[in-house]
Design a protein around this nucleic acid. Structure first.
Lengths: 363, 363
DNA sequence: CTGAAAGCGCTAACAA
DNA sequence: TTGTTAGCGCTTTCAG
């Protein structure tokens, strides 16, 4: 298989281990005391003012005389002082921090949402921190616990919080919460999402309308994917197609599992004329495998993906896929969190943003 | 172009907006007071003990009598109480939190590192939070500030901190820092990375040894990419190849920019016989464009990527690429942070983990 | 415009 | 095993 050519590190670089103290002397102006951090009192003493003046310089500069302002700022810059946010948060509640919980960073699925969320929050003066829960429920609980402990101004969840424990803690914390990427009549607090079941229905209807009669599902097996499958099968029954065979793959879905998936499906269901893949990456794998086998797409095999990644439009043939407006989810979630954090009521607590099928060349 | 079929939300779901209070009544046992959060004192009162006993139940359960333990735990579970971590952190320093700063979640580049970091920290009882800095320097400073304020037990940086302001704050905070994915003789604190310049050299040497004589660089234009280019050109000169033409693309690198990049390169340099792409995604675009033009890979065009994404091995032809052991970077960074957070010294503060060229079929 | 006092919620240290 | 006291670093409040 693949040959591997390793480049080992250069010995000279290995020897370059400067000590931190030495380096410190090079970059920061005076060595300064207190290696474990300054407090407002230290800065106050160095600037010859009181702690309150330092605090005001940082938070309400308009209430401080120009002279004091300049002096304090000089000391702050020289020392690299950063106020302790835990102490501040303890006293003044507002944290300027919103936390998002994602199951994984692997999938490019949430990228658009995260980017929009991050940007929208940034514009309103909040920072976004992301926690990765993995697909493990206990890890998710631990992460949620760690997040609630920090008392962020809001929490955005990718998906719906199912654990009753988690729901109770979220509720008790009083922190604004937005669940996303799914729909439920009973959100913890607010919700911006769409129906996975209806995606399944829509894709099935779409394939049928294009003349495909023997569709197969190539899908991850998580709960949302299962609801898309259920929607698809429901529509298949309505249209008289019978149950579509389903081939489940491990999460995360990859190009490799797409190739292997198509191979497996063709082995057991050679009549297959269309595939609904639960991610664009899976669909790309299918496209490549089809090409390797000389199968024409969409002629002999129709392929529909999910996610509308950047690559979908650039493929050959361009990929027909389901697009979810992740940017809108992120922006809306940010808006809701900030509104609530600043005491405004949110009128519509549940928003269904729908989805689109982007019809390109592959089906 | 693409037709778009939109599925609008069902009206019935829009109407399903239960109020939060109503829902709360459904899931949490008793309605409970204090909508804005409980304190240890509330829990203490409800359990008929002192605040300290509640604190001990949470942190040192072995020092509490079974009876008190059970009572307190019952109240905690019933109320969904989560202690205020800011207050705790203020008192006891240890936060149980490590922060990572990534330029972007877009690239799959750091996925392996983040996963390994997250897992290694988890095993040691720490949570990882990720901040996304974007490619904007002012955003990065704001993010860094927000992170230092929270006083995490450690900070992991993707890349090197160049801003003197940022360096000073990091140093002054006394928080253990690991810079990654690059090399410098003057890290802020600790460093786990590799040399981008040597990657450029190695790939040039590799292509030359495979008989390619007219290589072109298809690359992002960030600073690390520029150093890879410089390394490549240096080796090209040494080997008597002359300067390799360079085609820069916007970050983030995409499949689409890979396709467009190859088209542009062939228009200006039709003699090109090999391409070094600064990401696997770019390389995939090149592969697809080459195929669309009937160019054989590796026969007429050699292609080398960077990153060794999962998809590299599954492509047709399989992609020759540069692999960086992201898992090792993440694990090592976690180890270092935890060691330092718990008072142990780290012997080697600078680690160069090198890289490998994975030779597959595309070059 | 500036400072002194008080206290946010929690836990280390001590006392019972 | 349990409770009391004090104080982490900051900012709100109130007085100067």
């Amino acid at each position: 298989m693949a040959r591997r050519l390793a480049w080992r590190p250069a010995a000279s670089i290995m020897r370059a281990g400067h000590s931190r103290a030495a380096h410190r002397f090079i970059t920061s102006p005076p060595p300064m005391k207190k290696p474990q951090g300054f407090t407002v009192h230290d800065i106050a003493r160095l600037a010859g003012v009181s702690a309150m003046t330092v605090s005001r310089t940082l938070n309400h500069p308009d209430q401080v005389s120009p002279a004091a302002l300049a002096k304090v700022r000089e000391v702050v810059a020289r020392t690299g002082f950063v106020p302790n946010g835990m102490a501040r948060g303890l006293r003044s509640a507002k944290a300027g921090l919103v936390a998002a919980v994602l199951p994984t960073l692997v999938g490019p699925v949430f990228q658009e949402t995260v980017r929009a969320l991050s940007q929208a929050l940034d514009e309103r003066g909040y920072q976004l921190m992301i926690g990765q829960s993995g697909y493990d429920a206990s890890r998710e609980d631990a992460l949620l616990d760690a997040i609630i402990r920090r008392r962020p101004d809001g929490i955005v969840l990718a998906g719906i919080m199912h654990s009753p424990e988690g729901r109770r803690q979220l509720l008790a914390s009083g922190i604004p919460v937005v669940e996303t990427w799914d729909l439920t009549p009973t959100p913890v607090d607010m919700l911006v999402g769409f129906s996975h079941e209806r995606i399944g229905q829509a894709v099935c209807y779409f394939l049928h309308s294009r003349g495909y009669r023997r569709p197969v599902l190539l899908s991850a097996g998580d709960e949302r994917a299962r609801r898309r499958i259920a929607g698809f099968q429901g529509m298949a029954a309505t249209l008289g197609l019978g149950q579509a065979p389903t081939h489940l793959v491990e999460a995360p879905t990859t190009l490799g599992s797409g190739r292997a998936g198509l191979a497996a499906i063709l082995a057991t269901h050679p009549q297959t004329d269309a595939l609904f893949c639960s991610s664009d990456m899976l669909a790309l794998g299918v496209l490549i495998e089809a090409q390797a086998r000389g199968l024409s797409v969409p002629g002999q095999l129709g392929v529909v993906g999910l996610g509308d990644l950047e690559l979908a439009a650039s493929l050959q043939p361009a990929l027909t896929t389901v697009r979810i407006d992740g940017t809108r989810i992120g922006r809306t979630a940010a808006q809701y969190i900030v509104d609530r954090a600043e005491g405004r009521e949110v009128a519509e607590k549940i928003v269904d943003i729908g989805f689109e099928i982007i019809e390109r060349a592959s089906a």
